[in-house]
């Protein structure tokens, strides 16, 4: 019913989401969130939404990561 690749991607997403919420270093959280966005783009593609996958890969992994890093560099790094 659920393929091996689906299982791997979804479990990676769950682990990434938990780690982003629990980690104390904000830059590490941003990098893990970029990995989350990239895997989420693959999941959107497998769900049959290539439009959303393209936007997620450009925005989630590219622009949002940089904007978070710029915001962190103007404030402090630890939570």
């Amino acid at each position: 019913m659920i393929s091996v690749l689906d299982f791997l991607l979804l479990s990676f997403l769950i682990v990434c989401a938990i780690v982003v919420a629990r980690i104390r270093d904000l830059i590490s959280a941003v990098i893990i969130f970029a990995a989350y966005s990239l895997v989420m783009a693959i999941v959107w593609q497998m769900l049959g939404a290539p439009d959303i996958a393209m936007t997620e890969a450009a925005l989630g992994a590219g622009v949002t990561t940089f904007l978070f890093l710029a915001a962190i560099s103007k404030t402090k790094r630890a939570e």
């Binding site: 290539p50 439009d51 393209m54 936007t55 450009a58 925005l59 590219g62 622009v63 940089f66």
Partner: peptide, 17 residues
């Protein structure tokens, strides 16, 4: 094809970034 104004604009903006 898939995509459109928002996705393409985000890709162009990420190239400039």
């Amino acid at each position: 094809s898939p995509g459109g104004g928002f996705a393409g604009g985000a890709i162009v903006a990420s190239s400039m970034i």
